[in-house]
């Protein structure tokens, strides 16, 4: 096995824990993993009940997302499986990935959030559908804030009482997540939380 990020071979020592399936396979070397800065920042918002961001969007994160999304290296989805599993382990909560527009998804050949969840073996429900083809990353802040409805709920909501957790790769202005939460709340959902892998940190 080699590290998915730097291609150096991983030290592999057989252990009983590994044999019994308690210890998970690692897919990246410690040197590469160290470059990601864990922040576990939780913020509250008027429409989103809480947003939990796992890592700072630093240079390593930027390179990671570039290789994962734009170079289409699906294998990189595994790298954050353990950390995603650790925060999305509550089986009572319903995990809802932020979707891509079908045309964009076909172009990229995969949806990055679905790939992250699948790699982590986290069950999820695709309740949302993206209604516009436009991509947030290409918009200015004011354009983003002025956007009207971005998502539509496609399936029936089973239970209004359950907690829904939206998952996205990066939190920037929060527009995407707020729109998605709004769409769910209009269908009567009481509590919508969110988990994102990265979040840019303000310079102090």
């Amino acid at each position: 096995m080699t590290c998915l990020l730097c291609d150096k071979s991983l030290d592999y020592q057989p252990t009983w824990q590994h044999f019994l399936g308690i210890q998970q396979d690692t897919s990246a070397c410690p040197t590469c993993l160290e470059k990601f800065e864990r922040i576990d920042q939780v913020i509250e918002d008027d429409r989103l009940d809480s947003v939990h961001s796992l890592y700072a969007y630093n240079e390593a994160a930027r390179e990671y997302l570039h290789q994962f999304k734009f170079m289409q290296d699906v294998a990189l989805a595994q790298i954050f499986s353990p950390s995603l599993r650790s925060v999305l382990n509550d089986s009572k909560k319903i995990v809802v990935p932020i979707p891509m527009h079908p045309i964009n998804k076909r172009k990229r050949t995969f949806s990055q959030v679905d790939a992250l969840l699948e790699a982590a073996k986290i069950p999820y429900q695709s309740l949302l559908e993206k209604t516009t083809e436009s991509v947030m990353g290409e918009k200015s802040r004011s354009e983003r804030l002025a956007m009207t409805e971005l998502f539509r709920v496609t399936a029936d909501i089973d239970s209004n009482e359950a907690i829904y957790v939206l998952v996205d790769d990066i939190y920037t202005t929060g527009t995407t997540l707020r729109h998605a939460a709004e769409a769910l709340k209009q269908r009567g959902v009481h509590r919508v939380e969110a988990v994102t892998l990265f979040r840019p940190m303000r310079e102090k």
């Binding site: 096995m1 080699t2 699906v74 076909r106 050949t109 995969f110 949806s111």
Partner: peptide, 17 residues
């Protein structure tokens, strides 16, 4: 070990790259 198989949205099948 240098191939990864995933569910491809373009060819709608397991696809290796």
């Amino acid at each position: 070990t240098r191939f990864t198989v995933f569910t491809c949205a373009q060819c709608e099948a397991p696809c290796a790259y």
